[in-house]
Design a binder for these strands. Structure first.
Lengths: 226, 226
DNA sequence: CCGCGCCGTCAGGATCGCGTCAAAACCGCA
DNA sequence: TGCGGTTTTGACGCGATCCTGACGGCGCGG
């Protein structure tokens, strides 16, 4: 499911966007000011950001810069300003697109699709198979093989492993992991993760007590290393 | 030099774009209909295409489809049609952006820069990593590497380092740093910062007593230098 | 020269987060 | 309804992490 972060201090627009996006199958994250937008983006790694200019706390260009400091996530700017210099500033700060209010929902959705499409092409791995020294994960077939024998995983175990493998090398926050596997309502049940990570390690690690591939980063999340 | 293909059957606009783009250092290729546009694109592989809809020979979406059949080159559509369905059709056909005539040249140039920037990052340099002489910080993976070995950071240590790296070069006030890492209720506990900055320096600086990257600005805050 | 403010350093104790285990609750299916 | 597999929940021990207070160094102005 594609996660989209909507940043706007206008409750009306926020509501309209949330409804329309949710109806199209997007998972919607929201923020009402720049600081929380940066925090949510860092925590949950949305695939695309819709950013209203004129937030109460930060300049729009500062929010863009704050995101661009560490991520290439597509940013679509919303603004009431039709002034050309505003558009140029936002785009040069790193925004991907600029839509002026009032905007047509159909157009915004099309621009959103275009942005997401752009960012996802080319990143698909040729082989959806990832191998480590001790086991092999086939993302497409949803199968795990170890010592020439298939390892049976429960749906939850697979969900966690899939998230970690898809982001291999990168740290996956426990909040993000919980929301991807259990749903957006979860976020603090870190004990679930402890239980299932232990199970995965028991099934996959050569020495479950000293994991080499399913690494814990205390207080932050988990990481899959080849 | 960036090559841009401009496709338009209106000699006026073609001329205006050619002059403006050439003045900005772009190498300009032109075509006046869809068929020749596809031929020029195939022959010369421009880095970006500016495409007018309403060409004499082909439908705009067909031109887009013809390009998308073999290349991911950014396509910026120009059109006199403000109709929402036209925009949606063009964007869903594979266009990257849609600008309605009459358009401001400054805005078009900004959108052009954004499109080119997007397509060139991520190919080679897509990693949000910041490197100094002695260590490397990977913002996305939340990893720090020094002397080919990973350095383990606690959540608080990482939070501070992340803030500083995201604002590298700039001074980060101690109040701001405290609020970003510990929460809005904090602001005067500068002793926390002293302790954790010392720990970071011990882990990252070549000579912790004489820091080169994690600089203290007495009375103000801290600064991360490359 | 001395006091003051700010910073760096250190170490101990409180707290937090993790791994582990096992029991209870839940679910699909016969 | 009973059963096997799966998910959720609770409790415990242990190590890592965080907070705290004390001490000394440094620069600056009185």
């Amino acid at each position: 499911m594609t996660r989209v972060l909507v940043v706007d201090d206008d409750a009306q627009i926020l509501r309209a966007l949330r409804i329309n996006l949710a109806a199209r199958g997007y998972q919607v994250l929201t923020a009402v000011d720049g600081a929380s937008a940066l925090r949510v983006a860092a925590d949950d790694h949305p695939e695309v950001v819709v950013l209203d200019l004129g937030l109460p706390d930060l300049e729009g260009t500062d929010v863009i810069a704050g995101l661009r400091g560490w991520t290439q996530v597509p940013i679509i700017v919303l603004s009431a300003r039709t002034d050309s210099t505003d558009k140029v500033d936002a785009l040069d700060a790193g925004a991907d697109d600029y839509v002026t209010k009032p905007f047509g929902m159909a157009e915004l959705l099309a621009r959103l699709r275009a942005a997401v499409r752009r960012s996802t092409v080319g990143q698909v791995d040729g082989e959806p198979v990832v191998s480590t020294a001790t086991f092999t994960v086939d993302l497409a077939a949803k199968k795990v093989v170890r010592d020439n024998a298939e390892v049976h995983l429960t749906p939850t175990e697979w969900g966690i492993l899939e998230q970690l493998v898809r982001n291999h090398g990168k740290l996956v926050g426990q909040r993000q992991l919980l929301q991807e596997v259990w749903g957006p309502a979860y976020g603090k049940e870190t004990n679930y993760l402890r239980v299932y990570l232990a199970q995965l390690r028991r099934k996959l690690e050569p020495d479950p007590a000293r994991p080499r591939h399913l690494i814990t980063e205390p207080g932050m999340g988990y990481r899959f290393e080849l």
